[in-house]
């Protein structure tokens, strides 16, 4: 298997964290996402933990609850289709949220 050696591409971002750092947001204190924790806890697949392109959803290992970082949301809506049983996702209020400069 010929895995090429990555050149020194320090400006080419790889992780979601590094990429989100480049995205402009107008954060809203009020969250536009609601997770029904009891349903999430009972769900074995927990697809939102990996399907979200912006890592909005993480697991609180201690409580088993889903932590929601709504300020990272790129507003694609994938979570609501992948896990409609426990994710209630709506658009942020007008003017708030992601502000793509290039799109």
């Amino acid at each position: 298997m010929s895995e090429p050696v990555a050149p020194a591409d320090d400006k080419l971002k790889e992780t979601i964290e590094d990429k989100l750092y480049l995205v402009k947001y107008k954060p809203d204190k009020q969250s536009h996402i609601e997770v029904i924790q009891e349903v999430f806890k009972a769900d074995k697949l927990k697809v939102v933990l990996y399907i979200c392109p912006a890592k909005v959803y993480t697991l609180n290992e201690e409580t088993g609850e889903c932590l929601v970082n709504h300020e990272n949301c790129l507003e694609c809506g994938t979570c609501a289709i992948a896990a409609p049983e426990y994710v209630k996702w709506r658009y942020p209020r007008g003017g708030f949220g992601v502000q793509y400069k290039l799109g």
Partner: peptide
Amino acid sequence: PAIRPLVRGGETLEYAAHM
């Protein structure tokens, strides 16, 4: 390996997601 040379040395400007 068929794609890497296209982006080599570039600078990520923005990341986006959509359905």
